[in-house]
Amino acid sequence: MKRLEPYPVAVSLFFIFTIFYGICISIGLILADSGSNSIWQMHKIWLLFLPGFNGLDSLSILIGLLEVSVGSYAFGYITVPIYNYLLRDKFKKNSYQSKLIYLRFKSLFLSFAVFLILVFTLCVVYDILMPPQYSMIKIWEILLPGFKSLNFYSYLLGIVEIIIYSAYTALIISGTLNYFEKSKNAEIS
């Protein structure tokens, strides 16, 4: 078993969370300008997790960006040593040898795609079986552009969009982790 290094994990988390935060805030600002801010409530999640974030004003956005950035590094530098400490017995049994962690895009993409397609299919079946007031169609209309109602065309469109989202997410995660793992290993060598 390989001992993890905190730097590649922390930097990967930094890029992932910062990009996610930026996308969420951008969508919130665009929808607020168009008067459709009632359908995008992601900033309410940031209100819960980021102490200095108070809404979609400039100062709150900058404070939130700082907190997401510092929090990503803190999470990586706190959890990786804890992980290494909890598995210290396994490290002693095996000789420690520095190896690259290589996260395969294909494996990550297929994992995301299969999981999300199964969840989406279960949710569509739920929507078909449950009364309209409990339907998740509003969520699908927001998350999956072009999804209009519970029909076969919308279901196929949702599957295609989930595949695209899965590929995009797998590319970001595997690309950033593999890049920073290679650069960290080059520093060690």
Rank of each mutant, 00 (worst) to 15 (best):
I27V: 15
A167I: 02
K93L: 08
S183K: 15
P131W: 06
L59H: 06
L48H: 15
E181T: 14
K90E: 05
F20S: 15
P132K: 14
L143C: 04
V68S: 02
G175P: 01
K148A: 11
K2Y: 07
Y7F: 15
G22P: 09
D89T: 08
K90G: 11
Y153G: 12
M1K: 10
S26T: 15
F17A: 13
S26W: 15
I137R: 03
M130I: 11
K2I: 10
Y77E: 02
I117D: 12
I82E: 00
M130E: 06
S98M: 09
S72V: 01
M130K: 10
G55M: 09
D33M: 13
K44F: 14
G76V: 05
L171M: 09
I172L: 07
N178W: 07
I78D: 01
L177K: 08
K182N: 05
Q41G: 11
E161R: 03
T79A: 07
Q41Y: 12
I16W: 12
A74Y: 04
M130S: 12
D127R: 07
I39Y: 11
W40E: 13
L116K: 08
I27G: 08
I117T: 11
F91W: 06
F105R: 11
P145F: 06
N37A: 11
G175A: 06
Y153K: 10
I39C: 06
S135T: 10
R3T: 15
D127K: 09
G71Y: 01
W46K: 04
